[in-house]
Nucleic acid binder design. Sequence first.
DNA 1: ATGGCTGGCTGTGCCAGA
Length: 262
Amino acid sequence: MSFTIATWNVNSVKARLANVTDWLREASPDIVCLQEIKCIDENFPREDIESLGYNVETHGQKSYNGVALLSKFPIEETVRGLPGDAEDDQARYIECVVSAPDAPVRVASIYLPNGNPAPGPKYDYKLAWMERLRTHATELLTYEERLVMAGDYNVIPRDADVHDPAAWEGDALTLPQSREAFRSLLWLGFTSAFEQLDGRAHQYTFWDYQAGAWQKDHGIRIDHLLCSPQAADILKSIEIHKATRGKPKASDHVPVVGTFEG
DNA sequence: ATGGCTGGCTGTGCCAGA
């Protein structure tokens, strides 16, 4: 039996509620990682989502950031916040164990810091956050279970993942240190779903609201699904739901959906 | 084009995003 895991940075779940519920109805993903919900847990439109058949876990924050995990399957346990820094109050990580068909799958919804301007304190925070993620992922991989870390990584992995590499030179999303930190995550043993199963150039997941970026297809690919070996073994396909970017009141990101055969 | 949209907020413009 197959199931799907999606990731989508919605850029405010309240402003995007109609887009989100429309897409959940049309695509009917089994597990969904949301980022940038931009609201506290109490204000998440829980009933609207639950009525579509989802269990809901949130890790919200006022105005900024905020992540959530939706699942048609039961959610057995939840971790809120990326371990490793008790001082960090930004809601950028939630992890759940979900009772997927045949076996549990551990799923993390990740909103990695943007890091601009670089250099500077925001870039330092980004790199420190990536190092904490690497440490946590290293521990999770020792469980040898199905693990998918999906989200907005705010890293453009290759020059082929941006319309004009020169225009992004020096940006925190492309700097060599950012790419190296992303690659070092993969080297732990993760499979990046798109690069493994598709890998084509210029397949974007984000288009800026400004300067007609969508109309000119000036995008970047920064939303990724990273799979542990046990998850990669059952990964069948990966799809970027580009059409959602053309809808009224669209998020600047689109969903990315992986299909797994349990 | 060193920021041209969009969202949140206690705001009457500013910060953040990528």
